Amino acid sequence: MDDEMVETARVIDALGLVCPEPVMMLHAEIRKTPAGGLVRLLATDPSAQRDVASFCRFLNHELLETHEGDDRFEFVIRKAMA
């Protein structure tokens, strides 16, 4: 993925929050994001890995990237086109 595109993504800082807050914050931000837009979620809760993947599958959003390191997770999601 183009680093410039990821840099322009809306960023959600859910560091230190636990389930279900990171996915609830993602859901709220996705609603405000235009179709095809990018959202970047930062989280520390390990369950976010499972929850974000399930959220994307269920609502047809595209989970473009997942990174793990330094006791945190980073996800880049593209909002479904329709």
Rank of each mutant, 00 (worst) to 15 (best):
G36Y: 05
L15C: 03
D45L: 05
S54E: 06
C19Q: 04
E62K: 09
P34K: 09
R31P: 00
A28P: 01
E4L: 15
R78C: 13
C19Y: 14
V11P: 03
D71F: 00
D2Q: 06
A28M: 09
P46I: 13
G69F: 01
L59M: 05
E65C: 04
D45F: 08
A28W: 05
E65L: 08
P34M: 11
F73Y: 13
E21R: 08
L64W: 04
E4G: 12
D70F: 04
A35L: 13
P20C: 01
M1R: 07
A28F: 08
P20G: 01
H27E: 15
V23Y: 04
E4N: 14
H27R: 12
R72N: 02
D45G: 06
M5H: 10
L59C: 00
I30S: 13
S47E: 11
V18T: 03
K32I: 02
V76L: 15
D71Y: 00
L38E: 08
N60L: 11
K79W: 13
A53Y: 01
D2H: 04
I12A: 14
L38D: 11
D13Q: 10
P46K: 06
V23M: 06
A43V: 00
M81W: 05
P20T: 03
R40Q: 14
E7S: 15
K79C: 11
S47Y: 13
F75W: 06
P20A: 01
M25H: 10
A43W: 03
A9G: 08
R57T: 14
L17F: 14
S54T: 02
R40Y: 03
F75Q: 06
L26H: 08
D3L: 14
I12C: 13
L63G: 00
R57D: 11
R40N: 10
L15R: 15
A80H: 08
A9K: 06
E74Q: 12
R78F: 12
L41A: 12
G69I: 02
G69P: 00
P22Q: 02
F58A: 15
F55A: 10
H27L: 14
D3T: 02
D71W: 00
E21P: 00
A14P: 04
E29W: 04
D13N: 14
G16D: 03
M25G: 07
D45M: 05
H61D: 12
V52A: 00
E4D: 14
V76G: 15
T33A: 02
A80V: 05
A80F: 08
G37T: 06
R50Q: 08
D70Y: 01
T33I: 01
S47P: 01
V39D: 09
V76H: 10
A43T: 00
D70G: 15
M81H: 07
H61C: 12
H67M: 06
V52N: 01
V18A: 12
L38H: 10
F55M: 07
E74D: 01
M81I: 04
D71A: 01
H67I: 00
D13V: 09
V6Q: 09
R57N: 13
L42V: 08
L63E: 00
E62H: 10
H61T: 14
P34N: 07
M1H: 07
L59W: 07
A82V: 05
I12H: 11
